[in-house]
Design a protein around this nucleic acid. Sequence first.
DNA 1: TATCTGACGATAG
DNA 2: CCTATCGCCAGAT
Length: 107
Amino acid sequence: MTQTPEPARSPADLAGAEHLTPFERSVVAVLLATEPGDVVSYGEVAAEAGYPGAARAVGGVLGRVDGLPWWRVVTATGRLIPHDPDRQAALLRAEGVPVARGRVVLD
DNA sequence: TATCTGACGATAG
DNA sequence: CCTATCGCCAGAT
């Protein structure tokens, strides 16, 4: 196989990862890999993406890249994002995730 | 190349 | 339990 004319279409392409950095693409892949009802923290996404400790940088990706399930990302303590907690709570509940007083109910 | 910003995380009070 | 501060990382200017 001399060169692949059409590289495998990764889920990351759904967010237009054409002009994204490796870090952003990795984060996008992790988020798109999540499914409805699943909740992850910024630190978890960073670690899964291969950049442990870059939790803060993950937040930047959610703000720059659109088309991502940002509502499935919460803080390490289960706290909803300070940007749109009410919005996120509604989206999470729509997926079956119990939310109480601005925090996801961890089991 | 240097500096500032920010959808964070952990710890101290 | 909540607020304040420091530390860390990648992106933007």
